[in-house]
């Protein structure tokens, strides 16, 4: 009885039944996301290269690619968001308590851009450092970016990771190891490739995304 009463009080206090705490359903972002919500500096995480912000520490890189649909047609007006650790492998967030790696006050770790008419996108960022899998673990995640993709027709955001070629940590990365298919694993590794807009000396990496079909990018369970 007491238990039932406590439960009903809690229901009353929160004003609804317990089903209320099921995560809210996603819906497509649609084709009309305000352009003002994508600021010109949002695809430059380094600062300094496109405006006068203080420059983040580490190796600036360009990440670019093309997003295409199931028929390999350009996927236009698709929103890409990235989140990553800084050059030292530390996330700019209080839950990352890895005091062995310093926070860079000039690096937020987050960026956003939308694909152009030809499906292309481009970020300038800092090459992330690897980071520990956990305090009790001696495994490491390789340098990587997390990416969320939303767009018209995507009813739920897609999530994937971008890795870098020739990284020793790739071989022991827990996420790559969880993907048993070698071809899919390779698809998550960007390719070093020149980009005409990259200033001399700026390493550039290509990461194309295919949103469906046999060549689809490996997306992760959400």
């Amino acid at each position: 009885m007491a238990k039932a009463k406590a439960k009903s009080t809690r229901r009353k206090a929160t004003g609804a039944k317990s089903a209320r705490f099921v995560p809210t359903a996603h819906q497509t972002v649609g084709p009309f996301f305000p352009v003002q919500f994508i600021r010109p500096s949002d695809n430059d995480l380094t600062g300094g290269l496109t405006d006068g912000r203080p420059r983040a520490l580490g190796q600036p890189i360009m990440l670019f690619g093309r997003v295409s649909d199931i028929n390999d047609a350009p996927a236009v007006n698709v929103l890409l968001e990235i989140w990553q650790a800084n050059a030292a492998g530390r996330f700019n967030h209080p839950l990352d308590k890895n005091s062995g790696a310093a926070i860079d006050p000039n690096f937020s770790g987050w960026g956003r851009t939308a694909t152009e008419r030809d499906g292309s996108y481009r970020f300038t960022t800092i090459k992330p450092g690897g980071y520990p899998a956990g305090a009790r673990s001696n495994r490491w995640f390789a340098p990587r970016l997390s990416m969320t993709i939303v767009g018209s027709g995507l009813m739920r955001p897609l999530v994937t990771c971008v890795y870098f070629p020739d990284e020793p940590l790739n071989d022991e990365d827990p996420q790559l190891a969880a993907i048993r298919d070698a071809r899919a694993r390779r698809q998550l590794i960007a390719v070093a490739e020149h980009h005409p807009a990259a200033p001399p000396g700026l390493p550039a990496f290509r990461f194309d995304l295919r949103l469906g079909g046999k060549q689809a990018t490996p997306f992760l369970e959400d």
Binding site: G151, D181, L220, D222
Partner: peptide, 16 residues
């Protein structure tokens, strides 16, 4: 239908 992966891979949750 054009933007619809058929397959999803296991996600290893990390600090990211």
């Amino acid at each position: 239908l054009r933007r619809s992966p058929a397959k999803f891979y296991p996600r290893v949750v990390s600090l990211a």
